[in-house]
C-alpha cells in the first residue's frame, strides 16, 4: 500500500500542500475561483505543524489499527481492506466529532458549515496525491509501504 511519507528536514513550511489540498477538495479547478467563489473556504486535509525551525506536514497516517474507524458512531469512516485507505462517507457523517477526539494526531478537521468531519482520502482518483505533486521541495513522497 502507498502512503504519503514526510521528509521532515526539507519541509520549509510554505503551506503550498495545504493550498493545493484545498483546491483539490473544492468544486473548482481554478484556484482563484476555488477560494473566492465558494460559500466557505475549502478545508485542507493536512496541516503544517510548526515549531520553528521545525515544520511538519501532518495528515492522516492511515493507521494500521485506526482509532477513528473504531470510534465512528455511524460507520461513516471505513478502512478499505485492499488499499488500507481510510475514508469518510460524507452522507453518513453526522458531525458528532467523536473521531476528532479519537485521533491521536489530531488530523481530522471540522467542516462547520456542513457539520461533517473531514479527513485525508489520499486524493482518491488521482495518481499522486496533490500535496505530494505540488511540494516545491520534495518534502512529501508517495511511497509503497511493505506490510
Amino acid at each position: 500500500m502507498k502512503r504519503v511519507l514526510v521528509n521532515e528536514p526539507v519541509c520549509m513550511g510554505c503551506h503550498l500542500c495545504e493550498v493545493y489540498c484545498q483546491l483539490q477538495h473544492s468544486k473548482h479547478e481554478d484556484m482563484v475561483k476555488a477560494f473566492k467563489r465558494e460559500p466557505s473556504r475549502p478545508i485542507a486535509r493536512l496541516r503544517i505543524e510548526e515549531k520553528e525551525p521545525l515544520f511538519f506536514p501532518l495528515g492522516c497516517q492511515q493507521c494500521e489499527e485506526p482509532y477513528c474507524v473504531n470510534a465512528c458512531l455511524t460507520g461513516a469512516i471505513t478502512k478499505n481492506s485492499d488499499t488500507g485507505v481510510i475514508t469518510t462517507d460524507e452522507e453518513k457523517c453526522i458531525g458528532c466529532w467523536t473521531c476528532i477526539l479519537a485521533c491521536p494526531f489530531g488530523i481530522i478537521r471540522q467542516d462547520l458549515l456542513r457539520h461533517k468531519s473531514i479527513k485525508c482520502d489520499l486524493c482518491q482518483g488521482l495518481e499522486t496525491p496533490t500535496c505530494v505533486a505540488n511540494c516545491p521541495n520534495e518534502a512529501l513522497t508517495y511511497t509503497t509501504i511493505e506490510d
Partner: peptide, 18 residues
Amino acid sequence: WGICTSNLSLTKRINPEI
C-alpha cells in the same frame, strides 16, 4: 532562498537532492 543564511528555518529551503 535559503542559500546564504544560517537560519535553520531558511536553510531548509534548499533540499540538497534538488
